[in-house]
Computed example of a mutant assay.
Amino acid sequence: MSDDLDDFDDDEIDGNRLPAATARAVLEYLVRQIVDDPDAVEVEIDERGRRPTLNVHVAQGDMGRVIGKRGRVAQSIRTVVRAAAARDGVEVEVEFVD
């Protein structure tokens, strides 16, 4: 797993590291492992609110896989990603967008 995450640690904007880069990398890795179409997974960072929000977009048929029964998979993903964000010293929100 760490080899896959190393690819995402180099995300930069104007020479600065993206906010919540570790959280974004972990989120993208987890969602890609769950869905049928990993190439359709996109994670956007929205910094307009009080804390950064990571918006996840997946292929049409994969949203149910990401949400899971009673939202348990989604909640588990949020928990792991928030823990990863602590490494960056930030708090994040995770939203699954249609």
Score class of each variant (00 low, 15 high):
Glu47Asn: 10
Ala85Arg: 01
Glu44Asn: 07
Ala25His: 08
Val92Phe: 07
Leu54Tyr: 01
Leu27Phe: 06
Asp10Ser: 08
Asp62Leu: 05
Ile45Lys: 04
Val41Ser: 03
Asn55Ile: 12
Gln33Asn: 11
Arg51Asn: 14
Gly61Ser: 14
Leu54Met: 09
Gly68Tyr: 08
Ala86Phe: 02
Leu27Pro: 03
Asp46Pro: 06
Asp39Ala: 15
Arg87Ser: 12
Val26Thr: 09
Thr79Val: 06
Arg50Thr: 15
Ala20Cys: 12
Ala86Ser: 11
Val43Asn: 01
Val41Thr: 03
Met63Ile: 15
Asp9Pro: 00
Asp39Trp: 00
Gln60Phe: 04
Gly64Pro: 08
Gln33Asp: 01
Thr79Ile: 06
Gly61Trp: 01
Val94Lys: 12
Ala21Lys: 02
Val26Arg: 00
Val43Ile: 13
Pro38Asn: 13
Leu5Gln: 01
Gly89Asp: 10
Gly15Glu: 06
Ala74Gly: 09
Asp9His: 04
Asp3Leu: 13
Asp7Ile: 15
Pro52Asn: 08
Arg72Tyr: 14
Pro19Thr: 08
Gln33Glu: 02
Val97Cys: 03
Asp39Leu: 10
Ala20Met: 06
Pro38Arg: 04
Ile45Asp: 07
Glu91Val: 11
Gln33Val: 06
Val97Met: 03
Val35Trp: 03
Phe96Leu: 15
Val41Lys: 00
Asp39Val: 11
Arg32Glu: 14
Ile34Cys: 09
Met1His: 09
Val80His: 01
Val66Ala: 09
Tyr29Ser: 09
Asp11Lys: 07
Asp11His: 05
Ala25Asp: 05
Ala84Lys: 03
Ile34Asp: 05
Leu5Lys: 06
Glu91His: 00
Arg51Val: 15
Phe8Thr: 13
Arg87Glu: 15
Met63Asp: 11
Ala83Asn: 08
Asp14Gln: 05
Asp88Phe: 04
Val35Gly: 00
Gln33Ser: 06
Gly64Arg: 11
Gly49Asn: 07
Leu54Pro: 10
Phe96Ala: 10
Arg17Asn: 05
Val58Trp: 08
Gly15Val: 08
Ala40Gly: 03
His57Cys: 02
Lys69Leu: 06
Ala83Gln: 14
Glu28Lys: 12
Thr22Cys: 04
Asp98Arg: 09
